[in-house]
Design a binder for these strands. Structure first.
Lengths: 339, 339
DNA sequence: CTCGCCATTGTTAGCGTTCACAGTCATGCA
DNA sequence: TGCATGACTGTGAACGCTAACAATGGCGAG
């Protein structure tokens, strides 16, 4: 007795033989083609079930030219922001029936992003999401393969690539106006790395809010997102006479500022009010609990996939797009009115 | 004049024509086959370069039966631990020339893990890494498709699947012995969710250390990794007479404990010493900076890929494997000797 | 001088699917 | 009764690559 189709997992032809139909009919059943007799369909499904057949997506992708895989390029996904964004993207993509292939960059620069995109293109992804918060990364998107649908998250508006982002400027404005509303004469700022678009947007929102209120704009202190850089900035700020309010560009640095203030005997919020940005899970338990601005990473992920799939599945060209997700102000105990 | 191979990107046959050789020779050049004349190789490479040819990995995978893609299944990659682990895995996999396709589970249970594995198997991944810190997830690995190489990270020792993990028991022992060494009579414990293997290991290490020293073992307080649950536990602990030392199962909960102590007027480390676990980037800037136990997620990622690739690329069977990465004790300011 | 070997190259046949195009058969209508 | 119609099914040819084998030609050994 000849060994049937042992060794390898069953293929469509095996199912066809078992069901007494042609492989094409099996394909039709699998693809929900309408013109299949109910009885035939049942027989095929039974055979599929009996043999434990699973369709080979590689072969399918080869002929359809669609891999149903999306590429994601991101900077250091161990960080809270990128990790949350990628998580949101993955959830949305899988819900839409797409696989997600990820490339996480250790350092970000134009060449790195381009290499990553090349790498993914070689894998025949149907499209890519680039979490490109740095100016240098954003510019790598400008010379993207013409036929590879892409969307940038938190990116700049270079080229034709659509962008999904949280309104950083608005978030910073909310934070700054909150502080001004509490009676603070002006607000100091600890910024993020200069080539990050998010840092830029937050600084811009802070500055505009101050200018709109006709207040002096202090020289911002530099930071690199790390608690340590916030701590260093905090040491400096603690010695600044007349300081009553600080807007820090992210929560981790704000933690460093709080730590420095605590060491220097500056009481928060009694003497100085502090606002952060991001609302990481820890912020509500800082000492004191940190007033901050929350970003809805889930919404960003969902929107970016939505935009991307529209370009992949829809045909024709699309207008330059820029989708802005609103931030949410989260008041806590690190801010108070001037007495 | 006939339009050469426009429209679609060039394929191997186009390169062959351009170089005046057969497609098989092009294939040989691409695969570094030795028997190709240097001059021919150069001509082919020139043609590849000129046409901008990129080999279609899908077609290659179809015939070689190797996709050079690894699947990663993980629980909520927005969390620090899983995010760091997945980051390490991705770095190691890409360095080895593999793509990484990720499935991030919102909730974890046996069915979820099995579905994820099915999903990935359907994509013809060459192997999977399961970041399965829960008992329920680990058991889903027991009935894995026989022919799909797999490795569990932080998993149990069910089935034949090799495991890579940080030595949680040892880490907890280090933390507990550190506290006992400072003169504390006993150490309280805030634990993680009961079905997490990491929580279990940490509780075990804590308990054994106490028992080995002949000290009383207080009833551990329950937690769910969140700062909030740590805070709630902290409220209870603050009222515990005679309490001088607490080992908290992760840094986020430790933050909650610190917050509760601060609110209740319990001074750390003067009155109570606190030790966490994980060493998240924020820990060094808590008030006070947190003594904790660091896990080397990069090493875990590298090791898991190493083990997995050995099974994919090597042939034959392998012994049941369990690779343990040592933790590192990080002393900071939240612990001090009993006065 | 002839044979066999080896380096090099080409030819053919898949991998497992979908697509395009034919068939077959029952039905409805003239 | 004949024939167009539409529902259903089958056949062959891609998709772009690698594997297996065949063919070619140059060279040294016998």
């Amino acid at each position: 007795m000849v060994n049937p189709p042992a060794r390898h997992p069953p293929v469509m032809a095996d199912v066809a033989r078992a069901a007494g139909v042609s492989h094409q009919t099996v394909s039709r059943v699998l693809n929900d083609h309408p013109n299949v007799r109910a009885e035939t369909r049942a027989r095929v499904l039974a055979a599929i079930d009996r043999l434990g057949y699973r369709r080979n997506l590689l072969a399918r992708a080869l002929v359809t030219r669609h891999s149903r895989t999306l590429g994601v390029v991101s900077f250091d996904t161990a960080l809270y922001g990128p990790a949350s964004t990628v998580y949101g993207i993955e959830q949305a993509a899988r819900a839409a029936g797409y696989f997600v292939s990820i490339v996480s960059l250790r350092t970000i620069d134009q060449a790195g992003v381009r290499d990553a995109l090349d790498y993914l293109a070689g894998q025949s992804v149907d499209g890519v999401v680039v979490v490109a918060p740095q100016r240098s990364a954003a510019s790598a998107l400008a010379d993207l393969p013409r036929d590879l649908p892409a969307v940038a998250v938190e990116g700049g508006h270079e080229g034709e690539v659509p962008v999904v982002c949280v309104d950083q400027v608005e978030g910073a404005r909310l934070a700054t106006e909150h502080l001004l509303g509490l009676g603070h004469h002006t607000v100091w700022h600890v910024g993020g790395p200069s080539d990050w678009l998010e840092a830029e947007g937050r600084a811009e929102g802070w500055r505009t809010a101050l200018e709109a209120a006709g207040r002096p704009v202090p020289e911002p202190l530099p930071g690199d997102w790390s608690p340590r850089s916030g701590y260093l900035a905090g040491r400096v700020l603690a010695r600044e006479p007349g300081l009553t309010a600080v807007f820090v560009s992210n929560d981790q640095m704000a933690l460093g500022v709080l730590r420095a203030f605590s060491e220097e005997g500056v009481r928060v919020p009694e003497q100085v009010s502090v606002v952060g940005f991001d609302d990481i899970p820890e912020s509500a338990y800082f000492s004191p609990p940190l007033t901050t601005v929350r970003q809805d990473f889930g919404a960003v992920g969902r929107s970016s996939i939505e935009v991307l799939l529209r370009r992949i599945e829809g045909s024709g060209s699309f207008p330059r797009e820029r989708l802005v997700v609103p931030p949410e102000f989260v008041p806590r105990a690190s801010t108070s009115a001037v007495t």
